[in-house]
Design a protein around this nucleic acid. Structure first.
Length: 196
DNA sequence: GCGTCGATGGCA
DNA sequence: GCCATCGACGCG
């Protein structure tokens, strides 16, 4: 079966559903110089205003305006003064939901470390300049190549301990045991065999 | 291998 | 004064 681009109706599903479905999909960024392709291995869902971990819980502001817009648009913001994080607006228009892309595996013999949301955007040259970009366009978009989805693990989200009970919600999705998920070491040091 | 810490800037 | 991060550092 031929690869197909994700379209508006794919993005318009609830963030937790989309988040799960994006594992294994391919993220592409076309620049004038080259094309970056990577297979997504880790995501997180942010469920809109009631979700205290979501920027949407702050209401409609200059920053969250994109978040409360049309699904399938890029929401990219600066965190900790130095990293741009890439999100995809999800759900019904105006629902304020989004999916954070946390890690991916580079394709096409491209050597890069995409294990973490800050490292991923830096390596793929995704910046705040892309905030508000339509992901059904020709610059940054996603495709489904119909590779069977890998086994999934689901855990609470990372780095949101301030979010009261929402910190425990199982909204982080990743390919089980995949070497490219965030928080892993580069090359595990060879382990000495244990004596019994 | 793991906990702690600091860089750094936009936002409300 | 936060903060959807990351890498450096110290420990023993």
């Amino acid at each position: 079966m031929r690869s197909s681009r994700l379209k508006r109706s794919d993005f318009a599903r609830p963030a937790d559903v989309l988040s799960r479905d994006l594992i294994g999909k391919i993220l592409i960024h076309r620049t004038p110089n080259r094309e970056y392709r990577a297979r997504i291995v880790e995501t997180e869902a942010y469920l809109g205003p009631p979700d205290l971990a979501s920027h949407a819980s702050k209401g409609l502001t200059g920053r969250t305006k994109i978040l409360f817009g049309t699904p399938g648009f890029a929401y990219v913001y600066l965190i900790y003064g130095m990293y741009d994080l890439f999100n995809i607006v999800a759900g019904q228009p105006g629902s304020g939901q989004a999916v954070l892309i946390r890690a991916a595996e580079p394709m096409d013999d491209w050597q890069a470390d995409l294990r973490g949301p800050g490292k991923l955007t830096r390596a793929m040259h995704i910046t705040r300049q892309h905030n508000g970009l339509d992901l059904t366009g020709r610059t940054i978009f996603l495709i489904d190549d119909h590779t069977p989805p890998p086994p999934l693990s689901i855990t609470p989200r990372i780095g949101i301990d301030y979010a009261k009970h929402w910190k425990d919600a199982p909204l982080r999705f990743f390919a089980t045991d995949h070497p490219a998920v965030s928080g892993r070491k580069g090359t595990p040091r060879p382990r000495r065999k244990q004596h019994l």
